[in-house]
Design a protein around this nucleic acid. Structure first.
Lengths: 172, 172
DNA sequence: GATATTTGATATGGTGCATAACGATTATTA
DNA sequence: TAATAATCGTTATGCACCATATCAAATATC
């Protein structure tokens, strides 16, 4: 075995002995991911971060986070629901949903109305401004964000991806 | 138009007029996700949470988080690297990597060694215990975690999913 | 009518993530 | 060579997200 001064040298020689492939970019710049690239959870998280990043860019003019957008969408599709119901379907805990609604309500995007049936609960409603912002957000998401995703993946792959992710979210 | 006392009634009637399909579980329990189910970012995040949850369950006996596991994997595949290099490839900021390494080092899974070349940097090495824990973790991940994923998705889909996620993480 | 449950809310703690700044060391350059 | 800049690990700090316990008001249950 040859004597090597640096640790990097030792890596190079041991890899040479085992005849392992080396990253195209070389030893110094790119590290070996190893089985990390086969770890679904790792790839999922990295992809999710990138996609959220792009979402924020695309919808930046409206100052909406993915979570806020999902709330507006849900309020539009499900009028007459209270905080607990909306929060539950989004996987948000009720205490954490309070501040979120405060932010949306302070921007006049939605409003809490005391229910006449059950005066404990707040019926959530989109304001006119909320509906307008949602409409503009939908367009940005569809034409900029999702359009880019479909372009990168291809329409068929995009659909297949959605299906697999839905299955994971359900059966897991 | 019929007069309805409750908001839920109003939803039911308007949906009846538009002849929209109703969730199988009924109006009260299940809410309409709407275009949320077509939002890739939404599905990505929900799937990622489920997968991480399962990872934690499977590797619970070793008390390793996904992030910690990824660090051990990377140290094994890339000996002789310093903190900045490892942190960068994992997308972890150097300040936040310090506490992470402290935790691993306090459990004797890895060690920091002052580099002789550059006495500023710490060369990271797996300890014997670290290698042993990593070996056991790899088995748990492969046989319990990834095995279940492949079973749910099917091997071909699992591979296709990985490929698409990698493409998203790269080209986005 | 007494007790239990539900709803929105508050407080609080943990964790992940981001930025600024520091001392020690090394690299650059005047 | 001396002065300056850059890098490495580290600390401090703040923000966002997530989770639990708890509360008052209102409702449901018995």
């Amino acid at each position: 075995m040859t004597v090597s001064k640096t640790a990097a040298d030792a890596v190079r020689s041991s890899r040479a002995l085992r005849r392992e492939p080396v990253d195209p970019a070389g030893d110094d710049s790119m590290l070996q991911l190893g089985e990390l690239s086969g770890l679904l959870g790792y790839s999922l998280k990295r992809a999710q971060l990138k996609v959220f990043e792009d979402f924020l860019r695309c919808v930046a003019p409206l100052q909406l986070t993915p979570a806020q957008f999902s709330v507006l969408l849900l309020l539009d599709k499900n009028p007459g629901r209270n905080q607990t119901e909306i929060a539950n379907t989004l996987g948000i805990l009720r205490p954490n949903f309070v501040a979120m609604l405060d932010a949306l309500e302070s921007r006049d995007l939605c409003a809490r109305m005391r229910s006449t049936n059950d005066r404990r609960s707040h019926i959530l409603v989109l304001t006119d401004k909320g509906r307008a912002v949602l409409a503009r957000a939908k367009k940005l998401v569809a034409n900029k964000h999702e359009a880019r995703l479909i372009e990168v993946l291809g329409p068929a792959n995009h659909a297949a991806l959605l299906e697999m992710l839905a299955k994971l979210a359900q059966e897991f």
